[in-house]
Write a protein that binds this DNA or RNA. Structure first.
Length: 224
DNA sequence: CAAACGATCGGCT
DNA sequence: GCCGATCGTTTGC
């Protein structure tokens, strides 16, 4: 390629796939530990008919996550209550939990912990890592449509959970899928993140959770 | 079976 | 900053 694509100063990225054991830990361990990892998705673009049969690889550096656990009111699995929608949350860690919100958006979660406990990490934001990714994200997020243009800062391209599923091409078909390289979505080791660069704060959009809405279970990587 | 309600986004003021 | 869009999931009658 042209070699001009610069996602910022980053050390070498370790492309080793994260093993299932990485996810089979408590959700509050996994959620901050996912910062600096790379999420990879090989999914159809689903745009023009000609492109619909092609597959594109999108690689995003994980910048923001949130933890959800059945012990608190913010979680779909609160109180251990199972429904057809949240079934994936109760499986052993290492699979995807994908659900639909606000009548138009998909959200991508990583199931954590042991089988029988409802917990998952919501992936909220990411940084495009290469030219192929940027090309695919431009198309999927509609940056090339008339009257629209991509954000000037690359870290504003995928800065919300619904924007992230749009960029990766994730929808209900990935719900319950194992996160492994032989599937369509998986994680790589990525780059190390210093502990003092991780900022914890309250999760967004869960006012109905009462006092649990103030738990500092949102994790953001602030690159200095 | 009907109806309310979102773990949000993008466009406009 | 506010507001409208839009529909799967859940809950209650």
């Amino acid at each position: 390629m042209c070699g001009k694509f610069q996602p910022g100063d980053l050390p070498a990225i370790d492309e080793t796939a994260l093993p299932q054991a990485f996810f089979r830990r408590p959700v509050l361990d996994v959620a901050p530990d996912l910062l600096g990892r790379v999420v990879v998705a090989r999914l159809p673009t689903g745009l023009a008919p000609a492109a619909a049969t092609q597959e594109s690889a999108v690689r995003l550096l994980v910048l923001e996550t949130e933890a959800y656990h059945e012990s608190e009111r913010g979680a779909h699995a609160y109180g251990g209550r199972r429904t057809p929608r949240n079934a994936a949350m109760f499986q052993a860690g290492g699979i995807a939990y994908v659900y639909f919100v606000y009548g138009m958006h998909w959200q991508f979660n990583v199931v954590t912990g042991r089988e029988g406990t409802g917990e998952a990490v919501l992936i909220r934001a990411g940084l495009p890592l290469d030219l192929d990714t940027a090309t695919c994200v431009r198309a999927r997020r509609g940056f090339d449509l008339p009257g629209r243009k991509p954000p000037s800062r690359l870290d504003k391209w995928v800065d919300g959970p619904a924007k992230l599923t749009q960029a990766l091409g994730i929808d209900r078909r990935q719900d319950g899928q194992p996160l492994r390289p032989d599937q369509s979505v998986w994680f790589q080791v990525g780059v190390p993140v210093a502990a003092d660069q991780i900022v914890a704060g309250p999760r967004v959009g869960i006012d109905y959770a009462g006092e649990d809405a103030q738990l500092p279970w949102r994790f953001r990587w602030i690159r200095s």
